[in-house]
Amino acid sequence: MIKMKKRKKKLGIDNRRSKIGNGLVIFLLLVLGAFMAFPLYYTFIQSIKPSEELFQFPPRLYVLRPTGEHYTELFQLMSNLWVPFSRYLFNTLFVSILGTLLHVIFAGMAAYPLAKHNFPGKDALFAVILLGLMFVGQVTFLPSFIIISKLKLLNTYWAYLLPSIGASLGLFLMKQFIEQLPDSLIEAARIDGANEWKIYFQIVFPNVKPATLTVFIFQFVNIWNGLSKELVYDEQLKVVKVALEQISASNAYARMGSGMAGSVLLMIPPIVVFILLQRHVVETMTFAGLKEG
């Protein structure tokens, strides 16, 4: 037995990999990692440099006298706005949370019949939904703008909220995940007399938590970053992102520090959400396969 084990180890993956290969791998990862991390690091460093260090030649990659002055300045600017800052914050939270929840609930509900029911036209419908994977907001923003304006939704919360609720990606991921659930689970509930709604909410939904959380992240990030100033122009209805952009755009040079402080603050929510839920994302993407054709 022991001999067998040893032989297996000898044949094992690690032994077939050369030292040079490993060194090269680590070097490549470090270079790429530095490229990915540097802009994030630099944003942070610039936000805590005192103004005289910001305009210093040559620019430094580190900070000598770190300061929170840009953050203080930013908070002062924000509290002096015509619209109270809490209003922007409320708008942002309201739109991102409601938009995300509606998308997650509706996509999940639609994914269940597509994954587990049989009805004529199902394949055709799914093909159209796959086609929709390509019709993202950046591509269809113009006709969407026309539609939103004709529906008289311009300059309302709905202009932010509604367009992304019916995005294909969430439905696709949910459907792929639900398909992996064993049919016996659903059959057993049917025999017990549960109707389809009950099956979905009590059996399917609790079992697809990773997919739900993944779609939650994608949608939250999508809404958080996608909120634009074209659709909503009433100051009362604007979101934090637009307000911060307006502050730093009004005097880009003098406010370089507070602009960077604003960037740091804006980056925190998506990063935190992703790190908290990362594990579920990887699990979900396992099923995110598309067949040829």
């Binding site: 029911h117 019709f135 969407s144 509604l162 019916g166 294909s168 109707n195 389809e196 979905y200």
Partner: peptide
Amino acid sequence: TSWLMMAPFLIFFVIFTIFP
């Protein structure tokens, strides 16, 4: 039942993804 479960999503999908 199948269509009722898909309806809320499909309404938004048709109006804001396909119709554009």
